[in-house]
Design a protein around this nucleic acid. Sequence first.
DNA 1: AGTGAGATTTTGAATCATTCTAAACAGGGA
DNA 2: TCCCTGTTTAGAATGATTCAAAATCTCACT
Lengths: 149, 149
Amino acid sequence: MIQNLTEHDRENLQESLAKSGQKVTPQREVVFAVLLSKRDHPTVDEVFQRARESMPGLSLATVYNCLETFVGCGLVRQVNHERESTRYCPNLAPHAHFRDAATGRVHDIELPPAILQSLRSILPPGFDSEAIEISFLGRAQGGDAHPTL
Amino acid sequence: MIQNLTEHDRENLQESLAKSGQKVTPQREVVFAVLLSKRDHPTVDEVFQRARESMPGLSLATVYNCLETFVGCGLVRQVNHERESTRYCPNLAPHAHFRDAATGRVHDIELPPAILQSLRSILPPGFDSEAIEISFLGRAQGGDAHPTL
DNA sequence: AGTGAGATTTTGAATCATTCTAAACAGGGA
DNA sequence: TCCCTGTTTAGAATGATTCAAAATCTCACT
Ligand SMILES: [Mn+2]
Ligand SMILES: [Mn+2]
Ligand SMILES: [Zn+2]
Ligand SMILES: [Zn+2]
């Protein structure tokens, strides 16, 4: 079952939406709560299934709309691996992604600022980067990078 | 117009295919030649258009087949950005990709071994990585990272 | 309370890159 | 020549995502 948003998260949602002239709606609250309550990089369809538990009438198109809106105001990131369905991540800290080839699960990998900086430094002059995506593919034995997230 | 394969490239193709029990075919030669002759990370459809100039009867399905075969024997890499069409890259050296948001063009960015190593080092114990993908998104003014490739 | 404008949600259709299917095709032995 | 096997081909199917249009909601203003 999906928790409600904490007061803090609700304010965050409200303010981020307001910045681009948009409002909090029940659907957006539910979708945002789904993302925060289990940070396992769900696909749109997974978000849809989970959100319907608390809001049965919710439509898939609305989930697409909400997620696009959140990406637009910087509340969540899209995560793509190869040609698989897009996944969504509410972790705003700079981080890389590790996809376990065995389970398909996606883990957050902390990205030290120094490494991020050294990465930027490999760009030749004239190349200005707004975003960097780093993704690992491999096997993760047992544990999770963020066991208690 | 697409060049023929050099003797060296043809041998490379022949041997790589042979390793997985596959043969050189006219279609595979043409598709491989297309990839080598303009290393601009073409999409399947772009490869198809270019290849048809020298082999009008070629089918799109065959281009998909050839490219999948090449990826399978390590002759080329797939390059994905967001949800756009997959692109193909015959540069086997470790490198990152820079996508120019203005033009859509994809540039190769050299990746020093030291940086690759420091990236691997951010993985927590238990995470074994077989592949790393690094992609930048931004603007490239004028020049090309590999003007004479 | 009633209206109207604009935003949001909903349904169902459309898109389109990719994959699948099944039928031709090629070509090197037996 | 006749198989055997891998390859190519045309066309249909798939499936995530996007689009279009109608229905619903919000809310400021009367
Ligand atoms: Mn990622
Ligand atoms: Mn890339
Ligand atoms: Zn993440
Ligand atoms: Zn490349």
